[in-house]
Structure formats: C-alpha cells, structure tokens
Computed example of a mutant assay.
Amino acid sequence: MSTHLSKKEKRITIVLFSLIVVLLVTIAGTAIIYLQATQPMRQAKKEATELAQKYGNIETVDQFYRLSKNGTSYTVVGENKQNQTIAVFIPKDGTNIKVREMQSGIDQNEAKSVVLQAHADQNVYKENLGMLNDQPVWEVITKSKDGALNYYYVSFSDGKIIKEQQNI
C-alpha cells in the first residue's frame, strides 16, 4: 500500500491545515480580547462583593449591578446568615456604603411598573439598582417606538420617579 499523496491532495491538506490554524488563532485572539475587555468589570465585581460581605454580611451573591450616573456605583444583592435579602450600595470610591434590606424598598418589577404606568408606549430595555445623588434608586431604561433611549430613576424607598432623561 502506498502512502504517497498526489499534488492535489497535498495542496488540499495544506489549505485545510492553514484554515484550521487561522481559525484557532482567531478564536484565541477573540478570547484574549474578551478577557481583557471584561477584566475591569470582573475586578469591580470582586471588590464590591468583598465590601458587601464585610459591611452587609452577605454570604451569597444573587445580583451585581453597575450604575454610572453622576459617578459610578455598584450594588451587590444577596442573602445574609438570617436568609434576608440585602442590597449593599457601594460608591466607586468605596466610601459611604449603604446597606438596605430589599423588603424595605421596591423591587425590580415594581420599578418597571411605575415607569410603564407613566410611559405605557415604551418598552423596558434594562434595569439597574444603584445610587443617584447618594440615594438608592432603580434605573429603568426604556426604548421608545422610534428607538430612542429613555432613563428613569425610581426611588428605591418610595417608588417615585425622581429623575428622567428622555430621547437619548
């Protein structure tokens, strides 16, 4: 039995090998870029979680939010040893940390409902829990029918819209 390949078979083998190498390099490059791009957020989540454990006695983390309005803040939501769901609001500088029981304020669905009652023609795009002017808020982002983004800040404590930015 002969193991010699024809010239055509050799070219096909080289082309396939080259395509595989290019594909692997592309995948590896994409993974490296992704990891580098997400590193700051992963680091922020790690640091915020450590602060939430220290100041809010959170044992399990259920949610992590980042809000960047009038300064960046992070919020970690999780359960403490007493099985209470706690939100720890952390300004980027790590000072003036606020700890709240989630049952002491409105939840995500209530915040969406408040916004949709006032703006029924819009679709909710995203929600974040964070700090605005040293006050815990839900940021509810909507899209108008024309595609414009709208930002509504709903007080965590009483469920009132305290700030709006429309048609962005």
Rank of each mutant, 00 (worst) to 15 (best):
E79C: 06
R66K: 13
V25N: 08
I32K: 09
S144F: 03
E9Y: 09
A87M: 05
Q39S: 10
K143F: 10
R42V: 09
M131C: 00
S73M: 01
E139L: 14
K163V: 06
N83V: 05
N70E: 12
T26Q: 14
Q36C: 12
K143Y: 12
E110H: 04
Y153E: 01
Q84A: 08
K8I: 11
N133C: 07
A118C: 03
R100S: 07
Q82T: 07
E139F: 05
K92D: 13
E127S: 09
V124E: 03
Q117P: 01
Y74F: 12
G71R: 00
A111N: 02
N96F: 08
Q39W: 08
S113R: 09
R66N: 10
I33S: 09
H119Q: 07
L51Y: 08
V115D: 04
Q166I: 13
F64S: 03
R11I: 15
M41G: 04
S144G: 12
V115E: 04
R42F: 15
K54T: 11
K69C: 08
R42W: 10
I27W: 11
E127I: 05
Q166S: 14
L16Q: 10
Y151N: 00
T95Q: 12
P40C: 01
Q36Y: 11
Q117T: 05
E127L: 08
L132W: 07
G71L: 03
G147S: 13
L149K: 12
N167P: 07
I90N: 06
K145C: 07
I27Q: 12
T13K: 15
E9K: 10
K92C: 06
N123V: 10
T75D: 02
E164D: 06
V21E: 09
K7H: 09
